[in-house]
Design a protein around this nucleic acid. Structure first.
Lengths: 136, 136
DNA sequence: GCATACCCTACTTAATTAGTAGGGTAATAA
DNA sequence: TTATTACCCTACTAATTAAGTAGGGTATGC
């Protein structure tokens, strides 16, 4: 299951991408428009800012805004930041690889075999999509 | 993340598929060979039996065995039984569809748009694989 | 200098996962 | 028939994660 964090993060990014002239939008406005708990969204936006997708402006008239063009924001990166590994098991993860402690031989492992295909198919989708591709 | 339940279930199915003459295998033997907690595996095998993949034989010389040929066991079905929905959000699920309560219009939803692609790509992989394809 | 709006830490609640414990019951071989 | 094997079932629990709350701190700009 996709976490709410990822879901809300994607919606917020899409909402920001749809702004005219990329003007700062207040957390409260995004939260209201997308039906998200404001405080929860706050923490999500914070982590997106730290990951370099967006920046914030304090004080009156402030808010969050994208610092890249939507077409330069690949879904692969967004998903890794919000959701974590794309692979469903650590032993097939490219960026978060870990050996299974219960599995003596990855090459003989049936779970490994199918999950490798699943990872590749998901990666292909994410690589073919940027933020620009998923906004309405 | 793939749950341990699914991981162990897949491993057990693969182990059974590798048996000569499809002879019954005791829970204890599978558990030992695949490094799984025996009691936990017991509950997993039970649910696989109820789903019609395998049957059991009681008494001495008993155990679990497949009741279909591995090539007739599609990964799509196995995954749905063990892991549940293949889709990452209910609003793009074929078998477990549910409307998002926070989302007024699915067609305009960016999360829906990308997750639909992810579901389709995963489905294609699962549909192209049976248990026979993932055993070593 | 004050209101605005982001920033940050810590805590809490609920749900799910992964397992444990312990006994019950059916089938088989001797 | 009887002992043994091995599956069957319910209930409980510990650990983890997700999702959200609370409450104040701090920088900015008018």
């Amino acid at each position: 299951m996709l976490s709410k964090k990822t879901k809300y993060g994607l919606k917020a990014l899409a909402f920001l991408a749809n702004q005219k002239n990329n003007e700062p939008v207040q957390i409260a406005e995004i939260a209201k428009h997308e039906n998200i708990s404001q405080k929860f969204l706050e923490s999500i936006l914070l982590s997106l800012r730290k990951s370099g997708f967006l920046a914030s402006k304090k004080g009156k008239g402030g808010g969050y805004y994208l610092i890249k063009s939507p077409s330069e924001i690949p879904m692969t990166t967004v998903m890794r930041v919000l959701e974590g590994p794309i692979a469903m098991v650590p032993c097939v993860s490219l960026n978060f690889y870990e050996k299974c402690d219960d599995c003596p031989d990855e090459n003989a492992c049936s779970v490994n075999k199918i999950m490798l295909q699943i990872r590749d198919s998901a990666l292909e989708v994410y690589r073919n999509n940027t933020l620009a591709d998923i906004i309405s």
